[in-house]
Design a protein around this nucleic acid. Structure first.
Length: 205
DNA sequence: TGACGCTACAGTCAGCAGTG
DNA sequence: CACTGCTGACTGTAGCGTCA
């Protein structure tokens, strides 16, 4: 961005030609899709003071950070999903589910027995819910952020991202309203984002 | 130790947007 | 048009610190 303003004496045509070249860059392109950014850019071109240049650079830095952060988050979620899938495949291949095998070595109760009666479905729910979202993360930053959430928020995230339940299904299983689940979900994600942003800024210093 | 204020969390209600 | 999901506004509650 800075090199666009290094030559104050260039003609307007040259300037726009140069800008056109940079506009092919996807990041610059998306940056310039926002009217405020265009206005700021023109302002700097017309009045290239150090203060305005700094303002433009700061705006661009913030914009670039947000893009990188969004990319980082989506990639982390994507790779975690792949790793989780690999892990599940590995486990399912290694420990195949045999419904009529005893749950404990010395016991006679089988998984099939748990499934066979409706009153035992509660036990099955507990069995399934014992797996939390923290068990499926390979990113320390996200794990750390999730540890700071309330139990309820962790539970909502686990049900949403591990078991793929929607808000209504989570609400039903936690005996809460759908809106309450949605709220907890949104709040949990916002909190994770804030914690990771703070952590990244701290590391960046 | 009780009253008070602040903060965070969790809940409901109402309304909006997207979809089939 | 009904259904689903999300969100803003508002309210209640619990926990914590401060102060008389």
């Amino acid at each position: 961005m800075k090199e666009l303003f290094d030559h104050h004496n260039q003609s307007v045509e040259t300037y726009w030609d140069k800008l056109e070249k940079h506009r092919q860059n996807p990041i610059i392109k998306s940056f310039l899709e926002i009217p405020e950014h265009i206005a700021l850019l023109i302002e700097v071109r017309n009045q290239p003071t150090a203060e305005l240049k700094k303002k433009l650079d700061d705006t661009f830095r913030e914009f670039y950070f947000n893009i990188r952060f969004t990319t980082y988050l989506s990639q982390t979620i994507y790779f975690n999903a792949i790793n989780y899938d690999k892990k599940i495949k590995l486990i399912s291949e290694r420990y195949q589910l045999v419904l009529d095998r005893p749950l404990k070595e010395d016991g006679e109760l089988t998984f099939l027995d748990l499934l066979s009666s409706s009153e035992n479905m509660e036990n099955t729910d507990i069995f399934i819910a014992s797996s939390t979202i923290g068990d499926h993360l390979t990113s320390y930053e996200i794990f750390h952020a999730i540890q700071s959430l309330t139990e309820n928020q962790q539970q909502v995230l686990s049900l949403a991202y591990i078991y793929g339940l929607n808000d209504s299904e989570i609400a039903c299983s936690l005996n809460k309203s759908q809106q309450a689940v949605s709220k907890s979900h949104t709040k949990a994600l916002r909190k994770i984002r804030e914690i990771i942003e703070t952590e990244l800024r701290r590391k960046g210093q």
